[in-house]
Simulated assay, not measured.
Amino acid sequence: MTDLATLPTNRDEDWRYAETAALDALTVPDLDVWHEVTVAPGVVQRKDFILDNAHPGIHRVRMTLEEGARGEIFAIASADAYTRLEVEVTLKRGAHFEFGGVTIGGGEHVREFVTRCIHAEPEATSNQVVRAVHWGKATGNFLGRIEVVRDAQKTDAAQNFRAILLEKGASANTKPELEIFADDVKCAHGAAIGALDQTAGFYMAARGIPPEIARKLQVQAFIADAFENAGEEGEGLLDRALSVLEGAQL
Rank of each mutant, 00 (worst) to 15 (best):
M1Q: 13
A5R: 09
P8C: 00
T9M: 01
N10W: 00
R11K: 11
R11Y: 07
E13I: 05
E19D: 15
A21V: 06
A25M: 09
L26F: 14
D30R: 03
D30S: 07
D32C: 01
E36Y: 14
T38H: 13
P41R: 04
Q45W: 15
R46F: 00
F49H: 13
L51N: 07
N53I: 07
A54K: 15
P56C: 08
G57Y: 13
R60H: 08
R60T: 05
T64A: 13
E67I: 15
E67C: 12
G68S: 04
A69D: 09
I73S: 10
F74Q: 10
I76R: 01
S78Q: 15
S78R: 14
S78H: 11
A79S: 04
D80H: 08
A81N: 08
T83I: 08
L85G: 05
E86A: 14
G94S: 04
H96G: 05
E98M: 08
F99E: 03
G100P: 07
G101E: 04
T103Y: 00
I104F: 03
I104S: 06
G106R: 03
E108V: 00
E108Y: 10
R111C: 00
E112Y: 01
V114K: 05
T115E: 09
I118K: 12
I118G: 05
E121F: 09
P122I: 02
T125S: 15
N127Q: 12
V129D: 13
K137Q: 14
K137S: 09
A138I: 00
L143C: 03
E147H: 07
V148M: 10
N160H: 02
E167L: 00
T174C: 06
K175I: 12
P176W: 10
P176I: 08
I180S: 03
K186T: 02
C187N: 01
A188I: 03
A188D: 02
A188H: 04
H189G: 06
H189T: 00
A192W: 04
I193C: 02
A200V: 00
A200F: 07
A205I: 09
A205P: 12
G208E: 11
I209Y: 08
P210L: 01
P210K: 00
E212N: 11
V219R: 05
V219Q: 07
V219L: 08
V219N: 05
N229G: 13
N229V: 04
A230G: 02
G231Q: 06
D239H: 10
L245P: 05
E246V: 11
G247Y: 01
